[in-house]
Design a protein around this nucleic acid. Structure first.
Lengths: 334, 334
DNA sequence: TTGAAAGCGGTACCAG
DNA sequence: CTGGTACCGCTTTCAA
């Protein structure tokens, strides 16, 4: 791989001049510029980003930390960050965090080693304190899908509680009175907030959720199936189910139909997230759109902005609202 | 961010010594080692990967080039590479190529700038010649989902033709005689090979595909729907459809059912790829598993191996076979 | 066992 | 407009 020196030697100029040409610097004679450019071509010269980063103390790399890419939700998140990265001629440096605190720490350390100054991190396992510390060390660190009050201005998150409320209003507008819920057995923030918003909003209309109609299960399709079996077995009546996420919702629908219930004719089902599969399911799933890709773009932009506006207080975190996507799995109760 | 010099100064040793400690180098007094380690902690010192890469001419980064991450197929590919990267304490450097030749070139150039020596590339737009040239320039470049004869040893690909044959055998074993095909309107290699294998194998059994029963459409759900409408409208009889990919297959099923046909009771449908949605569809899709994640791991490993065994001829490319995954969308013809 | 010093490939300032 | 040169942070001989 040829270096700037090679180019300089062959072109018969100094490395300083080559550097100017490479960076479109001013004050380079036209002739010289042409000559140097030509030699660069000949030699297939490409500047070494490491050397550049070293001397300029800038990185052309945008870091992302997600649990894994196999989950389409996180793939979309990474994709959103990539969109912004491309706009700035930067590249994604990806670190996966495998759902445990230690990996999350390792992931961020690797990014620090690479002197990646802008990072979008999805962290569920590190404590608030640890994240606050990290934010101090890395000014360009932005958290996504999480809010921590003291560093709100570096957070981009979804209002899960409002999502629950929207779902509740939707079902009520469809005249449903007896509703069931399927939540995640992992009592992290998201499911708790969604459920809380949901029941609060129902409560405001005088509807109380029968606690026998709340099931907790693995947040995947099978979990949805099992939870639905329990719901059915409970003997309680219900005309609609609010499900923690789309995968579970699809599992729920499948169990419902296997048991002779039509969706949405007999029972309405509403999911959450609006991931790819919700569009492919039959009936197509009514769900709450989680605008993760926009959020990721916003987070990436925020991370980049912090750097440029260092010191200014203009940069703000951002709360997103889920949006109801009415498809086919919910209907008015007869 | 503190540097090696800071550590050296505070610890009262030379930077050479600090470097030795960092790299677990030999010949460091125990006391010194402890002292230095402690100072590193205090200062929160992290070695600068750029500086290291510069002097060692090695990269701790594994490059991946895919069209985009939104497609779960490519997300899985990236994930496979990440798995290997993690095993080697490396990180993913991701460049997206947006489906056009120019972006693919740009993507790889960015990786070259970063002096990323191991790269797994999914390229459909660059010409064979261009890729062969690139392979020469970048020894660690490995192609995935593509074979080029001269550089076969740097390719990891799927035998699409065999996939078509397997599908054909499966449908024949189910007694289907009149089969339809839905292919992609983009006549790149994959659909062509799948279709060729499929019809060849049928041909061996004396079954010819009625050319009116071959439809070409956009390779997505909607394309599958439209193609199926055409098939139905043609008035031709058929009891099974071999579909180019799962998204189209799901579209096909949906149109079939909308028109009163039961899948698989009336018509069997077989897809290709075995992406996430095929497990979520109703009926669950019978399809050909495309082991993209294993393939990606293999490609990444290959890329890494090339570097270490430079010069040796041991490294070989690898052809993968798709595997039939029998689920619910195909059944014996009555 | 430790330190001094020569780079790795660039950038940017200062002279000329 | 161009060249000389002092670093950027680190690894790696070579001596001590």
């Amino acid at each position: 791989m040829s270096t700037i020196k090679d180019v300089a030697r062959v072109a018969g100029v100094s490395i300083a001049t080559v550097s100017r040409v490479v960076n479109n610097g001013p004050k380079v004679g036209k002739k010289t510029r042409v000559k140097v450019t030509q030699v660069m071509e000949e030699l297939g010269y490409t500047p070494n980003a490491n050397a550049r980063a070293l001397v300029t103390q800038k990185s052309t790399t945008l870091g992302v930390i997600v649990p894994a890419l196999t989950d389409p939700f996180f793939a979309s998140l990474a994709n959103g960050v990539d969109t912004i990265a491309r706009q700035h001629n930067m590249q994604l440096l990806l670190s996966t965090s495998q759902q445990d605190a230690e990996s999350e720490r390792a992931a961020i350390n690797l990014l620090i080693q690479q002197r990646c100054h802008s990072i979008v991190m999805h962290s569920k396992k590190l404590t608030d304190d640890e994240l606050v510390d990290l934010c101090e060390k890395i000014p360009g660190l932005v958290l996504i899908d999480r809010v921590i009050d003291v560093i709100k201005h570096k957070c981009v998150w979804l209002d899960n509680e409002e999502g629950g409320k929207i779902a509740a209003r939707h079902l009520m507008s469809l005249k449903h009175q007896q509703v069931a819920c399927i939540s995640s057995k992992y009592q992290i923030e998201d499911p708790t907030l969604r459920l809380r918003g949901f029941s609060q909003e129902l409560g405001r209309a005088g509807i109380e959720i029968n606690s026998q109609l709340i099931e907790y299960a693995e947040p995947n399709q099978q979990g949805g199936e099992i939870a639905t079996q329990h719901l059915l077995a409970s003997g309680q009546k219900f005309s609609a189910i609010f499900v923690y996420n789309d995968a579970m919702a699809i599992g729920a629908i499948s169990t419902l139909e296997d048991n002779g219930y039509r969706v949405p004719a007999d029972i309405s089902v509403i999911g959450f997230d609006d991931v790819l599969i919700s569009r492919y399911s039959r009936p197509k799933l009514t769900t709450l759109h989680y605008p993760i890709e926009s959020m990721a773009q916003r987070a990436a932009q925020l991370s980049l902005d912090i750097k440029s506006k260092a010191g200014e207080s203009a940069v703000e975190g951002y709360k997103y609202l889920p949006r109801l996507v009415k498809r086919e799995s919910t209907n008015i109760k007869y």
